[in-house]
Amino acid sequence: MTEAATAAGPVDSGPTAGERFINGILPENPIYRQLLGMCPTLAVTGGMQPAMTMTGGVLFVLVCANVIVSLIRGLLKPHLRILVFTLTIATFVTIVDRFLAAYMYQMSKQLGPYVPLIIVNCLIISRCEVCASKQSVRVALADAVGQSIGFGLALASIASVREILGSGTWFGMRVLPAAWPEWVIMVLPPGAFITLGLLMGLVNWYVDRRQPSRR
């Protein structure tokens, strides 16, 4: 960790690469702690396959956007920075969208508008703003990967509950007996809200128990 701090240089006063990486996974989990990126969280967690494809897309876009923004951070004008962020993000989202349509056509149809909507995912623009536009490429990269893993874990937890209860399957494989009465509500939008709320309550309860002083 000390190595990372020196490598980042004297101007870099933010957290180190290692801290950024760890923070993204649990302490600053984008879904459960920051409540960012709610649109894909609610919309594509009906099953594990779309949820993981979405995570892959977000990982690619976030890594590319963070690296590029970090590279040009010295040239950014404060009043034009959001424009540059959006331009960068939109480019990579379009690339992801085209790749899915070319190589994973069924998945691309299933995800529908939610792939282009990564452009307006606050998670990505907030990482550009908070980390990439202020810190070195190395830290920005660690941050992007850490946040994406956190995002993926959160999506996986919600999608697992919804797919298992709603369809009796996990990643398309049957895990519950065929006699299981499928909870249709779980694959519909209300199931997303209910699952997210209950899991978030569980995470808060866990965090409170571990750090009683936080109260």
């Binding site: 040009i72 950014l76 004008k77 034009l80 424009l83 540059v84 331009l87």
Partner: peptide, 8 residues
């Protein structure tokens, strides 16, 4: 002001 945006 804008050269970076145009270039990008």
């Amino acid at each position: 002001q804008a050269w970076l945006v145009i270039l990008l």
